[in-house]
Amino acid sequence: MESVLQLDRVCKLYTEGVPVWALRDVDLAVRPGEFVAVVGPSGSGKTTLLNIIGLLDRPTSGRVLLAGRDVSNLSENARSLLRRDLLGFVFQNYYLLPELTVVENVLLPLRLRGSVSARDRTRVEGLLDRVGLAAYARVFPSQLSGGQQQRVALIRALANDPTLVLADEPTGNLDSQSGRAVFDLMRELNRATAKSFIMVTHDERFATQADRVVRIEDGRIQPEAVTP
C-alpha cells in the first residue's frame, strides 16, 4: 500500500549560531494506520523531524512526500492548507486557545476551513463523548486538568479528519497515570480511525506498544534493533 508519508534523504542544517546538522540523510516511510514512536536522546533531532514532516519547517535537502505528493517546495500558503487538511498536531503543552470553550477549540480546525457541517459536528462531539469529556463541552480549558486538556487537544487534532497525526511528547507534561490514559486513548483512536500517528516520546513503555519504533541519534535514524 502507498505510504502516507515518505522522507528521502532529508537533511536539516541549522545555520544560526554554530551550524548544527539536526537531521542527516533521514529516510522514513509511514503506512496508513501505522503508529510510529520516535525516540532518542535530547537534542537528537526528534522535534526537527516532526516540524519538517508537519510542514512547519523546510529540509535543507531531501524530499518529503505527503499522501504521495512532493511537498518540499510548496509555498507558505499551500503548506498552511495542507496542514489544515491532512495533518493534526498534539503538543506537549496542550496549547488550547484559552478564550475558546472546549467544543469551540475542537471545532476550530474545521472552522478554519469554512463552515462546520452537521455531520462534522456530530462526529467531533462523538469523539469528545468517547474520551469522556462531553460534559465539559462548554467549559473553558483553564477549568480542566492537564490530562483532560491533552485529551481535548487530541480530539482537536482529529477534528479535520487528518491522514497523519503528529504528537511531540504528548505525555511529557503529565503524571504517569494521565500520561498512560492519553497514550491509551491515542492508540485506541489510531485503531478505531485508521489514521497514522507519529509520536515522539521519552517513555519506553509507550514506545514498545507502538507498531514501530524509530530511534534517532545525532540526527541519524538508527537501524532497527532486532527484537529478541
Binding site: 498552511s80 496542514r83 503538543f91 486557545l97 478554519l112 482537536r156
Partner: peptide, 8 residues
C-alpha cells in the same frame, strides 16, 4: 498554534 492548525 493557529498557524500550525492550518490558519493562513
Amino acid at each position: 498554534i493557529l498557524r500550525a492548525m492550518g490558519a493562513t
